[in-house]
Design a protein around this nucleic acid. Structure first.
Lengths: 245, 245
DNA sequence: AGAAGGTTGACAAAATGATGACAATCCACC
DNA sequence: GGTGGATTGTCATCATTTTGTCAACCTTCT
């Protein structure tokens, strides 16, 4: 649940903002002056801060700096009367992530807050001239299961599933030839490597583990099918059972 | 009318840059080597210089220094292959205002050139010998941790954390592929270099040190995760994000 | 039904990782 | 050069995870 800390001295504005954010299902926390704001921030780090520039007891600028020093990843959106912003750059240097001048449209403020959260919140910013991020992940999706071989993460219905390196290897090999029946021998060669030559029951066991982790009903496999006397095959689509029954 | 002096020996790159800048209504002047560049600069001082680092007849570094000595207010954006920049601070000392590593996106280059012009043009010259400017720093921010790879400074909750050169290198490599599982071998190759080939336990130890310095609870890592049998990965936020954006 | 093949859970061996201590190396500063 | 401190690679030990094997039992096919 995302929380927004609103630091703002005017009651009217407090109410307005509260309604606005709650309507967008954010949890709202309100502080009426700078000190209060700082305490609230420390006590329960919010997902985003909306901060009035002129405040009693501790100026918005001070606060901004303090927040950023303490927890740089929490985005800050500054509210200010038009006149107050003599230098927008200065504000950004203080660490603010965006600013909105009063009067503002609620929609706009909300949009900016949301964007700030998206950009900064919990996520890393790697600022650099080398574009670092765009690494393609090798993905496999079937039913409600999602496998990311690059980050080695697996989820089912959104929940993470612990999988071992070997399991990823086996799964990837199977998934690269969907529908094809693959013999235990081939699997031992390709997944385990020539040198190692574990008994052929080993494969069974690993298939078992894949089923237990990924099949809705491990006892009645839909995706990891046994081809009696031949091997296994992975069928990502709809488990049109290979059997006649 | 703003003019940009492009000093670059590759014809292809010359054309690319020319089109790029002309499309943005800058007047483009081209020099194919260092001497030519220097002459062009002296004859008709441009609004900004885009300078390839490695050049025939006069190295980019020499040029950079010469330009800055001669006319410090003209901003310089350096182009370089990634490998050439081992030390960004050095560049800064040479007087460059920004740098872009190849390959770069045209948009990005343009943006940086424009910004360099803006920054320097508006600036009153506080020049004397060297006037280093705010060059973009390579930043990494996650949770309350802030890493600046350019100045090699790290802070956690605002407090400085001592980190060694090797630690920065490792961290940067990890952070450039967030989420991706990276094997010890790759790390050894990329971070330590082929020549050096320390034992694979070395990596473990450095990860350990990163954890001790940067993790809230080093015994239960949140950011530097071990993937048993595979390697390590750096996971910045706790976003359940699995996709490439 | 019988034989061949497949499933399953338990378990112990083997592989892998964590960690602290230590020695080699590097470095800045006399 | 020499010296003290920081940095870094290596090692030994311990903890944890993974995984191959086995044995009992279940399915399928003829």
């Amino acid at each position: 649940m995302d929380t927004v800390l609103v630091i703002e001295d005017s009651r009217v504005m407090q109410r307005t903002l509260q309604r606005l954010f709650e309507a967008d299902s954010l949890v709202v926390q309100i502080a009426s002056d700078g000190m209060e704001g700082l305490e609230a921030f420390k006590k329960q780090t919010p997902s985003v801060v909306v901060l009035d520039l002129k405040l009693p007891r501790l100026s918005g600028k001070e606060l901004c700096r303090a927040f950023k020093a303490h927890m740089p990843s929490v985005p800050i959106v500054v509210l200010s009367a038009d006149a107050e912003i003599e230098d927008k750059v200065l504000l950004l240097e203080l660490g603010a992530d965006d600013y909105v001048t009063k009067p503002f449209s609620p929609r706009e403020l909300l949009a900016r807050v949301r964007r700030a959260m998206r950009r900064n919140g919990a996520k890393t910013r790697m600022v650099s001239n080398v574009a670092p991020q765009a690494m393609d992940h090798e993905l496999l999706v079937f039913k409600d299961v999602q496998i990311d071989f690059t980050s080695m993460e697996a989820t089912r219905a959104g929940k993470p599933i612990p999988m071992t390196a070997q399991e990823f290897k086996l799964l990837r090999y199977l998934a690269r030839s969907p529908e094809r029946v693959i013999s235990r021998e081939e699997l031992l060669n390709e997944v385990w490597g020539y040198q190692n030559y574990p008994s052929t029951r080993t494969v069974d066991n690993h298939i078992l583990r894949l089923r237990q982790k990924l099949e809705p009903d491990p006892a009645n496999p839909r995706f990891f099918l046994t081809m009696h006397g031949a091997g296994y095959k992975f069928v990502p689509g709809h488990g049109a059972n290979g059997k006649n029954s």
